[in-house]
Design a protein around this nucleic acid. Structure first.
Lengths: 324, 324
DNA sequence: CGTTGAATG
DNA sequence: CATTGAACG
């Protein structure tokens, strides 16, 4: 086992795979202690995985107004493969008013007819990477037509990779984003830091006009509670101090992490699991996908859900219920 | 239909795909005439495909000596995928004394255990491309140990792509080759012409020491009879005048195309069908794989077979029966 | 581990 | 149409 762990670490070294090693560090209460005591060797034994069950959807605000807006966000990790894996069947079942997709990896002309033809969502918006085909890309599908839709964040250097779509509705902005990954070896961490600054400025500006909902793959696990193995991932993309501080700064600018607001202590609530090492079956994951709200919208928040059972990507979808 | 043909041709234009257009040009006798007469429009209709059934194996020489050497050659188009598609099951069933494989696209360290462990063939020889991983590569598996085995043809410029293995046995040489494709747009035709000259010299020299059997994907259809659509492929890699003349020159140097020697008029005898356009089901193919013999070995030839039903690659295997 | 396009055939 | 490694995650 020890050898195995070492080999795993060697394999992962420097490349910053998100899920880290195969030995669970997050303990499962008394389970963990017992297994430590019974372990014959000095090496750690795998502990019982903390699986996760999301609570039932709450469909009203704290003051009792019924939910009337349902949004789903999903990093699909390649829209075409995700469609083949019946991702759209799950979406039809979930039946949200708005669907936001990230990492579509698909130019508009290559979109499968299954999604371009979907009559339930007559208003569809696509953003793709200008240069690299099959890289990045986000989409937004709406049942009702937004007042206005824009692409990018208004900064040339950030707007070539199809990472942001902003839709304006009467009472709010909806922003969906696929935040740049800091990359293996953190080769793109500097760029990411600049992105975080500029993206925060963009959101702050929007927020001054109208409250906003930000959703998508923000490519950061904010706190230790937000990933299975915080100890071993301090230098992994998505959990560097810089990226975590970037998220903290966003919250400090007047926004709220809706899930953590509602469930401040809930462990094991992840939205991403690397395909490697059976991470998902062991719930060795990260919470990288969020609904971040303008503080002004907190009163309209009903629930913020993690649909961890939905398959088709290395991320699972998340769903937001609002009264607006 | 005409539009479709045009689009196909446009798609294929300049890239020299071997199988050419989807309309069969090779006629099926009276069938063809009838369909032409009944055609309402001026455009050609698809004709009934000429399918191919190989004759039963003949297991003795013309003078009645029983076959005692069975060789199988197969361009596997990626050994790892071919193994997954049960190519080895077919080989075990065929049970030849020697197996020659081309386009293995696999370095020695990446070989699947299913083939490296095969106890029926204790003597295994692998050649791979030096530079490009997953490109070219040939292999030879023998039940009995050769006297000597060499790699390449003794010319630096040709010996970097793992294209030739030569095994010396008491009474003959066995050479397996994956001849360089002239490439889309014939970008490598000049190189191929040089190869043909040097390979022929290599074989001629070998032949002076001991008679030889050459097998493999020679990447040329010699005569019009050797591919479905000769008219439309005059400029396609594998059927250019230069490549065909290269093969003619080889025969003129004292060698025999064993299949065509035995079956001089047989049509539809192909060993390759592009994966595109359902070519194989329509037998729109090419004969690119050969057993070429030193003239001295003709007296030992029992049969030269095309196993066109064996699946797992875009080529089918060919089998040679000899008395040696 | 799994998606994507590129090169090759 | 299908295989391969490379980039990326």
């Amino acid at each position: 086992l020890f050898l195995c762990v070492c080999l795993c670490r060697l394999f992962i070294r420097g490349i910053g795979v998100k899920s880290s090693v195969s030995v669970c560090v997050c303990s499962a209460g008394s389970e963990a202690k017992r297994s430590k005591k019974t372990g014959e060797k000095a090496v750690k034994e795998p502990e019982a995985p903390v699986l996760y069950e999301d609570s039932p959807d709450k469909l009203s605000t704290p003051d009792g107004r019924a939910a009337n807006l349902k949004i789903t966000s999903w990093n699909v990790d390649g829209l075409r493969a995700w469609v083949k894996k019946s991702g759209l069947d799950w979406v039809r079942e979930e039946d949200p008013d708005i669907i936001c997709l990230q990492e579509t990896k698909c130019s508009e002309k290559a979109l499968p007819a299954e999604i371009t033809d979907m009559p339930e969502y007559p208003h569809k918006y696509w953003a793709a990477s200008d240069e690299k085909e099959g890289y990045s890309g986000v989409a937004m599908l709406c049942k009702t037509k937004p007042i206005n839709v824009t692409f990018g964040i208004g900064k040339e250097e950030h707007d070539k990779e199809g990472r942001v779509i902003t839709a304006e509705f009467p009472s709010y902005f909806l922003v969906t984003a696929y935040v740049p990954n800091a990359g293996r070896g953190l080769v793109r961490l500097e760029y990411r830091k600049g992105w975080d600054v500029d993206f925060r400025a963009y959101l702050t500006e929007l927020d001054q006009r109208k409250p906003l909902i930000l959703c998508g793959d923000l490519n950061v696990a904010h706190q230790e509670l937000d990933l299975k193995n915080p100890k071993t991932n301090r230098k992994s993309p998505g959990f560097t101090p810089e990226e975590r501080q970037g998220f903290s700064a966003l919250l400090a600018a007047g926004f709220v992490d809706s899930f953590r607001h509602l469930y401040p202590e809930r462990p094991g609530a992840f939205t991403f699991w690397t395909y490697m090492m059976n991470s998902r079956s062991k719930n060795v994951g990260w919470r990288l996908d969020y609904y971040v709200l303008s503080q002004a919208l907190l009163q309209n928040l009903c629930d913020s859900k993690i649909r961890s059972k939905a398959m088709g990507s290395d991320h699972c979808p998340i769903t937001l219920h609002m009264t607006l």
